[in-house]
């Protein structure tokens, strides 16, 4: 199948969680505490998509499917999209867009601060996720900026972990998945060396065909 079609299909699939929430909202399906449901669901999808983004490189190497690299930026953008929704729903329904209150909340509650920094790190990545920015920055700088996904994903899991009241099993699953993805990279760097080129010579770092 044409790569463009696959990308389009993935684009639509990534919209399904949002579509689901919209439909649930329309048909009173968000449960007794709809706000909490919306905040939780968008947060979890953001985290899932961050992990999906981070698993592209291992999958590409393990199964030698370099084409999926071309989906990575879309997954990253969706992770940011759901993270932003997560924040905006909180800002709207929990804070009524009172920025002073939001700022106070961020500064006084570690779990909110952690979540905010995680989202904040995604902003420069999201902004520079176009071919133009890749070219403008050059591969080296572009990759430096996009290294931010590691602290961002770590903080996102920590945010979830700190938020739960007592039962940490769900965030634990994400922590383990993230740990595997991190360990894979460390192991790869250790065994195969940092200097081994990540890309085919005819692709730039975002997987764009030159």
């Amino acid at each position: 199948m044409n790569v463009k079609w696959i990308k389009f299909l993935v684009f639509l699939i990534c919209l399904l969680p949002l579509l689901r929430l919209v439909l649930l909202g329309l048909f009173d399906g968000l449960g007794p505490n709809p706000v909490s449901h919306l905040i939780h669901s968008t947060g979890v999808w953001s985290l899932v998509l961050l992990l999906v983004t981070l698993s592209i490189t291992p999958l590409r190497r393990l199964f030698e499917v370099s084409q999926i690299l071309r989906l990575r930026r879309m997954f990253g953008q969706y992770a940011f999209f759901y993270g932003l929704l997560h924040f905006l729903i909180y800002a709207w329904f929990d804070q009524y867009f009172e920025w002073q209150g939001i700022w106070r909340d961020i500064m006084s509650r570690p779990f909110i601060l952690v979540g905010f920094i995680s989202l904040f790190f995604l902003v420069p990545m999201s902004v520079t996720s176009t071919n133009r920015w890749v070219r403008r920055l050059g591969v080296r700088w572009w990759r430096r900026i996009h290294w931010l996904i590691y602290p961002s994903a770590f903080l996102a899991v920590l945010h979830f972990w700190l938020e739960v009241k007592r039962d940490i099993r769900e965030p634990l699953i994400y922590a383990i998945l993230l740990g595997i993805l991190f360990l894979y990279r460390i192991g790869y760097a250790f065994l195969c060396g940092r200097t081994k080129p990540l890309l085919n010579s005819n692709q730039d770092c975002a997987g764009v065909q030159r």
């Binding site: 007794p32 709809p34 909340d105 509650r109 779990f111 938020e163």
Partner: peptide, 16 residues
């Protein structure tokens, strides 16, 4: 320690 108790959400309502 982790969240504010100043407001609450009444189940079945959207506003605080």
């Amino acid at each position: 320690p982790r969240w504010s108790q100043a407001t609450e959400r009444r189940i079945g309502e959207w506003d605080l």
